[in-house]
């Protein structure tokens, strides 16, 4: 019961250890999918939203949230899904965007809300790149190739 007096901040700190199984450099806080944290009686309610409706990582993320919280002593946890407002890449943190780039994925870029040639190559920085396909290895990414360093890369689409 003493856990109930804990702060919401400390819960966020724990949630910051949960990563996206498909893009493991990003935490769920970087992604902006944690919408609310609240205590109701002795129950901890974590509200999350999905990135894309069919994202297969969501169930795993919910399970990982439970595990992290349980490890910190929170057993009575309810995970709620919110749909509206719909998730947008605007909710991704700046730190998250930097991490993506280091990881080799071009972060969301407002100049390319509709994917087209020219997204900056995360490896060499060139804008001489071409869109290969609007659909990449996961729903949230588009596939590109750099014409200068020749590397193929993913672009995290604006959404």
């Amino acid at each position: 019961m003493e856990k109930i007096t804990d702060t919401i901040e400390s819960i966020y700190e724990i949630l910051g250890r949960v990563t996206d199984p498909e893009v493991p450099v990003l935490t769920i806080l970087d992604l902006g999918i944690v919408r609310n944290v609240a205590f109701k009686g002795d129950e901890l309610i974590v509200t999350i939203t999905s990135t894309y409706t069919g994202c297969p990582a969501m169930d795993m993320i919910a399970a990982n949230i439970r595990m992290e919280l349980a490890a910190a002593g929170y057993k009575n946890v309810r995970i709620e899904q919110s749909i509206r407002p719909a998730w947008t890449t605007d909710w991704m943190s700046e730190a998250g965007k930097e991490k993506l780039k280091e990881y080799g994925i071009a972060p969301p870029d407002k100049r390319f809300t509709i994917p087209e040639d020219g997204v900056g190559c995360p490896r060499c920085g060139s804008n001489n790149t071409r869109l290969v396909s609007e659909f990449g290895s996961t729903a949230c990414k588009a596939l590109y190739q750099c014409r200068d360093c020749q590397e193929p890369f993913d672009f995290f689409k604006c959404h």
């Binding site: 999905s50 409706t53 069919g54 297969p56 659909f135 996961t138 729903a139 596939l143």
Partner: peptide
């Protein structure tokens, strides 16, 4: 990959 992604969206 594109059509499979669309599939996944539809099932979502």
């Amino acid at each position: 990959i594109a059509i499979s992604n669309i599939s996944l969206d539809l099932i979502g």
